[in-house]
Design a protein around this nucleic acid. Structure first.
Length: 507
RNA sequence: GGCCCGUUCGUCUAGCGGUUAGGACACCGCCCUCUCAAGGCGGAGAUCACGGGUUCGAAUCCCGUACGGGCUACCA
């Protein structure tokens, strides 16, 4: 019944959890790297789900891998969350009643849970050595079929086991999977009913020889003790779910609703990795993408409002997100669509907002600083729409407006060949300089009127004239609109550049 | 090997038994035009992975196959 299970239609009402009407979800990244695109989408869905239901969004850092977890990564993840505007109600920095929010600080609760399992006769010590287990596993696999633990130590008598523990023999604690459990079926909020035969679930290790909790044990205890009602996470955890359900059951804890999100793949259909270029949220930020666009794109990569809507505000997302409209199939990440979407957001900016947004990029390129922007506010706001209309990534502003800020420009060699080398280019520059020299009000309208007269007077095509001037002024064949650019550049610099380009131009 | 999940234009998706299979990105053409964009108009692109059923009727329901993916650790 797993495949064709029809998910309930009226969105979200059936998301009623057996646990609580009070939605509590969590995003639990491991600080072994930066916030990955896939992780970001998981975070977004959790956030949106919580907001949609007036619930609580918890951020929990799973820093139990001491080798790879770093505080720096934790900070980077926190920053990425903030950049995306994913505010959480409980977690590092903000605290909350279910803390601490770092897994390494929750060890006591795992020990406590283990005691409860012992009391419930739901766990047993296992003395098999890793080497023995390897051998058994290999043999089992060679035989075909189930390759889980053969439950040797489960057969040990309590007295035996206690004696061996007392003698100091190393041991782990395993979950005693009930023999009569039958099929483990759970209603996945995105995939419908999913079922696993209970005898295919291993007597998994809960607590290691060194006393630390394994992943499946730790997450389950954390989710239970944090009263998480909906576990929305990556597809890679689907097979872990029956194990975790068994732990909830052994503990007598309510089982949350699970929702498994499919993976995000690279253009080649393979799992997203370094080979695919940028994979972290901050890499996209540095590439000139806007948080609005990344959020919008990721929201739609695996979820749809109605199949038509492509531009989606965070408010709309927060007000309409539903798990039953999440796609079940893996999605290929499409940089081009993200870029288009980014352009849409850039174009929507008002001049003053665009100026704010481009300032960091100008500063980083050493073109301008906040003070200059303040002192020439109108000038920047005139420039804004000329640029915002023609870029898709914020980093492009630097190339697009650089000529306005530098004293001297270098002319693109290709532009020299293609434009200045054309016959008539020299005459065009000369005529433009002569005409503009006498212009009093150096605004775009006047500049345009002045330059428009030149092609005819020289008997040249407008394109020849204007492109020559453009290259002389901006150094490139591509630029914001010419007349406006000239007006913004100002008379002295314009005349100087017209002059400077003359040696390159064919008369 | 075993268990589980998935498969609609190149890509993201709509679709919940009867549709000319809709939209978006990308692509192509035309218009606009001082470049580049943006914008407008139009176009091409999906035998709904394949094969069997069920049904008057299937992209939609069932079964199987193929392909892709996940899990199968004292990793997370």
């Amino acid at each position: 019944m797993r495949q064709g299970l029809k998910r309930p239609r009226p969105t979200d009402t059936p998301e009623r959890s057996p646990v609580s009407e009070n939605v509590r979800v969590r995003f639990a990244p491991s600080p072994t790297g930066h916030l990955h695109i896939g992780g970001a989408r998981t975070a977004i869905y959790n956030w949106a789900f919580a907001r949609r239901h007036g619930g609580t969004f918890v951020l929990r850092i799973e820093d139990t891998d001491p080798e790879r977890s770093t505080d720096e990564n934790t900070q980077a993840i926190l920053r990425a969350m903030e950049w995306l505007g994913l505010d959480y109600d409980e977690g590092p920095g903000v605290g909350g009643p279910y803390g601490p929010y770092f897994q390494t600080q929750r060890f006591a609760s795992y020990a406590d849970a283990l005691e409860r399992l012992k009391a419930a006769d739901a766990t047993y010590p296992c003395f098999c050595t890793p080497a023995q287990l390897d051998t058994k596993r290999e043999a089992a696999r060679a035989r075909g079929g189930f390759a889980g633990y053969d439950r040797t130590c489960r057969l040990l008598s309590v007295a035996d086991a206690e004696a061996r523990i007392a003698s100091g023999e190393p041991h782990v604690w395993r979950l005693k999977v009930p023999d009569d459990r039958g099929e483990i079926i759970f209603p996945d909020a995105v995939r419908g009913d999913v079922s696993f035969p209970a005898d295919a679930v291993d007597d998994l290790v809960l607590v290691r020889t060194d006393g630390t909790a394994t992943y499946n044990f730790a997450v389950t205890i954390d989710d239970a003790t944090m009263a998480i009602t909906h576990v929305v996470r990556g597809d890679d955890h689907l097979s872990n779910t029956p194990k975790q359900i068994l732990i909830y059951e052994a503990l007598g804890e309510p089982v949350p609703v699970f929702a498994h999100l499919s993976m995000i793949l690279g253009a080649d259909g393979k799992r997203l990795s370094k080979r695919h270029g940028a994979t972290s949220v901050e890499a996209y930020r540095d590439l000139g993408y806007l948080p609005e666009a990344v959020m919008n794109y990721l929201a739609l990569l695996g979820w749809s409002l109605d199949g038509e809507t492509t531009i989606l505000s965070r408010e709309t997302l927060a007000g309409n997100f539903s798990l039953d409209r999440v796609s079940r199939n893996p999605a290929i990440f499409d940089d081009e669509k993200l870029e288009w979407l980014n352009g849409v957001y850039i174009r929507e900016f008002s001049p003053s907002v665009f100026v704010e947004r481009m300032l960091p990029w100008l500063e980083e390129a050493g073109l301008a600083n906040a003070g200059e922007v303040e002192s020439r506010r109108e000038w920047f706001e005139e420039l804004a729409p000329l640029v915002s209309e023609r870029i898709k990534r914020m980093d492009e502003v630097v190339d697009m407006v650089g000529f306005l800020f530098r004293d001297a420009i270098t002319i693109d060699p290709l532009a020299k060949d293609k434009v200045l080398a054309k016959e008539g280019a020299g005459r065009s520059l000369e005529a433009a300089a002569d005409a503009l020299m006498h212009l009093e009000d150096f605004d775009a309208v006047k500049v345009e009127a002045t330059l428009r007269a030149i092609p005819e007077s020289l008997g040249l095509k407008p394109k020849i004239v204007f492109q020559a001037v453009r290259v002389a002024i901006t150094g490139s064949t591509i630029s914001p609109p010419l007349f406006e650019s000239i007006a913004l550049l100002g008379k002295p610099r314009t005349l100087a550049r017209l002059q400077d380009a003359r040696p390159w131009a064919t008369v």
